[in-house]
Amino acid sequence: MNASERITVRLMMPDRWLEHVAELPADTTVEAAKAFGIREMLQRSSDDPADFYTEYAERRIRDETRTLADVGMPPRGVLSIRAYDLGHYPPFRG
């Protein structure tokens, strides 16, 4: 897949039963896709994307600067967006 291709991605917030299907360029970063999904699904811009993490194929994506193509996102692939909670702590930044 080259960077100029567009792929259809299912952005999901499983803990909130929300889903949004979007066609994004393959060179979109996971971080940008996550921010887009949060805005589209929650319908507000006040949520900080840093309060959420992403999963692909039930595995956490630790480096969200990677592109959708880099993580191997297939057409109709699912990117799960989850809020940090008691079982999943945000990275320590201190």
Rank of each mutant, 00 (worst) to 15 (best):
V9Q: 00
M41F: 07
I38F: 02
D47F: 12
W17E: 12
D47L: 12
G87W: 08
I61H: 02
I38L: 15
N2L: 10
R10I: 09
F36L: 15
V30K: 01
R62T: 13
E55N: 07
V21M: 09
A50K: 01
A69R: 15
G87V: 08
E64L: 03
D47Y: 11
H88Q: 09
L24N: 05
D70E: 15
R93M: 13
D47H: 10
N2D: 14
S46Q: 10
L68R: 01
D48A: 06
M73W: 02
P74T: 10
D63Q: 11
S45W: 05
D85Y: 06
E55Q: 11
V78N: 04
E58Y: 12
E23V: 13
E64P: 03
D70W: 02
D85T: 04
S80R: 07
V9D: 00
R16D: 15
R16V: 10
R93I: 07
E58C: 08
R76H: 14
S4L: 12
D15M: 12
I61N: 04
P75H: 15
T67A: 11
T67G: 10
R6N: 12
L79I: 06
M13L: 14
A35G: 02
T54Y: 00
R59P: 00
R39V: 05
L68E: 02
A69Y: 02
R62D: 14
R16S: 14
S45M: 08
A33K: 00
G37L: 07
R62L: 13
D51Q: 04
A32R: 03
M12C: 13
G87M: 11
V21Y: 03
D48T: 03
P75F: 10
H88M: 07
Y89T: 11
F92C: 09
G37F: 02
W17D: 10
I81Y: 00
P91E: 11
D70I: 04
L24H: 04
P74C: 06
D70R: 05
Y89G: 07
M41G: 05
G87A: 13
T29A: 06
A83Q: 08
R59K: 14
Y53G: 01
H20K: 13
D85K: 05
A22N: 04
M73V: 05
L86I: 09
A69K: 09
S4T: 13
G37D: 03
S45Q: 09
R82Y: 00
V71M: 04
M41L: 11
R44T: 12
E40Y: 01
R59Q: 15
M1F: 07
D15Q: 15
H20M: 11
P75Q: 14
E64I: 05
V9H: 01
P74H: 10
M41V: 09
V71K: 00
D15H: 14
R6C: 12
D85A: 11
H88K: 06
K34S: 02
R62W: 11
A3D: 15
W17M: 09
P74F: 10
D70S: 12
R76I: 08
H20I: 06
E55Y: 02
